[in-house]
Amino acid sequence: MLLVIAAFIVAFVLLLYMISPLISPKPFKLNGAHVVVTGGSSGIGKSIAMECYRQGAFITLVARDETKLVLAKKEVEKCAINDKQVVLCISVDVSSDYGQVESVIKQAQEKLGPVDMLVNCAGTSIAGKFEEVDMDRFKKMMEVNFLGSVYPTRAVITTMKERRMGRIMFVSSQAGQIGLFGYTAYSPSKFALRGLAESLQMEMKPYNIYVTVAYPPDTDTPGFVEENKTKPLETRLISETAAVCQPDQVAKIFVKDTIVTMGLFRTIALFYLCSFDSIVRRCMIQRERAKAADKRE
């Protein structure tokens, strides 16, 4: 009986593997594309910007600290493959006010053209036992890690829909897949990104806009160093069961997944999602026909 079940699972996985290319997006070319990276002044965000620049992209780095932005810009510029590439720096808190975020994204598009790819990498972390974490930190986590991705995404989505193209990446965390000891403030804010991304993907797929979520493991970044200062013993021991990755390694994988493989968030739900996508597309077509009819009248 177990052999039959195992054979069925293997056959099902192989079937999904064969079907997935049919619904995956075409590879996205970074050469000449405008890529906006929030949280781009350090860590994974800066490494993603560098990787995109190596492939010929134009980069807008978004972060709060102007000094770090200037230093990051110099590092990214060293990765240029032609003399036409540009790195633009914008200092803004992406979690504080949507109006400000919308304004700076508009400025970036006026200078470097429409945003082809948005990488939501701005985030922060805190570790501590539930009853020992200050209540305002729970609010701060949601503002930075969740709204800090909602605002930039909202600022670029209309233009992407008009152009019928775009890529959006949300950088979550492995703690956004599994709740862990010491992350009662951090994990929920990262879990929220998955719900946002999956729902948004279903809305945007008919417009040829694809969304992906990255779940980096512990990575050697300034934020990770800061987080280690407050980790409870249990959290630290759990963390030490896996190796710490380098941001350059993580960035290469994330960029490749975003521009090439993307596809679906949950392979097991493939057939359901295909059906749901069909419903969404039919509704979109009906609305467009209705608008066209209204204009004729």
Rank of each mutant, 00 (worst) to 15 (best):
M1N: 13
L2G: 15
V4K: 15
I5D: 10
A7N: 07
I9K: 15
A11H: 07
L14C: 11
L16C: 14
M18R: 11
L22C: 15
I23F: 13
S24Y: 06
P25R: 02
P25M: 09
P27W: 13
K29E: 10
G32W: 06
H34I: 11
S41R: 03
S42A: 13
I44K: 02
I48P: 02
A49T: 04
M50A: 12
E51A: 08
Y53D: 01
Q55S: 03
A57E: 03
I59R: 06
R64I: 00
R64N: 00
E66R: 11
L71P: 00
L71M: 04
K74W: 00
K78R: 15
A80L: 05
A80H: 05
N82A: 09
V87D: 03
C89M: 07
S91E: 06
S96F: 10
Y98I: 08
Y98C: 04
Y98P: 02
Y98K: 10
Y98V: 09
Q100P: 04
V101N: 06
V101F: 12
V101Q: 08
E102F: 10
Q107E: 13
Q107R: 14
Q107G: 05
Q107D: 15
A108K: 13
L112W: 11
D116K: 14
A122H: 08
S125V: 15
I126R: 15
A127C: 15
E131N: 14
E132R: 14
V133K: 10
R137I: 14
F138N: 03
F138T: 03
F138D: 03
M141V: 11
M141P: 05
V144K: 01
N145K: 08
G148P: 03
Y151W: 06
Y151V: 02
P152E: 01
V156S: 01
V156N: 01
I157S: 02
T159P: 00
M160N: 02
K161H: 05
R163K: 13
R163H: 08
M165N: 08
F170T: 02
F170A: 04
A175V: 12
G176R: 01
T184C: 15
A185K: 03
A185H: 09
P188D: 07
F191M: 11
F191K: 08
R194V: 13
L196P: 03
L196K: 07
A197C: 09
E198P: 10
E198G: 06
N208L: 04
V211E: 02
T212G: 01
A214Q: 07
G223C: 03
F224E: 04
E227T: 00
P232T: 03
R236A: 05
I238N: 01
I238W: 04
S239H: 02
E240F: 00
E240H: 00
T241I: 04
A242Q: 02
A243Y: 02
V244Y: 04
C245P: 00
Q249F: 09
A251P: 08
A251K: 13
A251C: 02
A251T: 11
K252F: 01
I253D: 03
D257Q: 13
T258Q: 09
T261V: 06
M262Q: 15
G263D: 06
A269M: 14
F271E: 10
Y272M: 12
L273V: 12
S275L: 12
M284G: 00
M284H: 05
I285H: 10
Q286V: 12
A292P: 00
A293M: 12
D294Q: 12
